[in-house]
């Protein structure tokens, strides 16, 4: 192995003795996040569903943030991005983030616009 393996996660808060230990630690962390997601998805607490924060229900924001956290640990620890060259990592990560943010922005704004047209337009869609 050419690269040195970095064995700490959570910005050094948790340091593992071996790579295998780190893998199991990350698995436990990912499982906890999935369990939280599923529990929230089944319970759907009213206070997280009945309000709107930044155009979306707070529950949906929580799901998206937890997903990104999961994606981070899969990419960093399972796909070894943590051990790769810094600029390889940056080119892999920032390219899709930039493009996806752009695409999502364009398509969601457009979808929202069409939704308005269906709603207030003169055409009847539900008959």
């Amino acid at each position: 192995m050419a690269h040195e393996q970095k064995l700490e996660i959570f910005r050094g808060l948790l340091k593992f003795k071996s790579n295998v230990g780190k893998i199991w630690g990350v698995l436990i962390f990912l499982s906890i996040i999935t369990a939280i997601e599923v529990a929230l998805g089944i319970v759907r607490p009213a206070f997280l569903v009945d309000s709107i924060v930044l155009g979306m229900k707070p529950l949906n924001w929580i799901f998206i943030i937890l997903t990104l956290v999961k994606a981070y640990y899969i990419a960093w620890d399972f796909m070894h991005l943590r051990d790769e060259n810094k600029f390889l990592r940056r080119s892999i990560v920032w390219t899709p983030i930039f493009l996806v943010l752009y695409l999502a922005f364009i398509l969601l704004v457009e979808g929202n616009y069409i939704h308005e047209v269906y709603k207030v337009g003169f055409m009847k869609w539900n008959f």
Partner: peptide, 24 residues
């Protein structure tokens, strides 16, 4: 390959979001 495939999947998921926003 992974990067281009990731963009393909993002395209699909964004298209899903588009249709979903359309029929919110």
């Amino acid at each position: 390959f992974i990067l281009s495939d990731a963009l393909t999947f993002s395209g699909f998921l964004c298209a899903y979001g588009f249709s979903r926003f359309k029929f919110m």
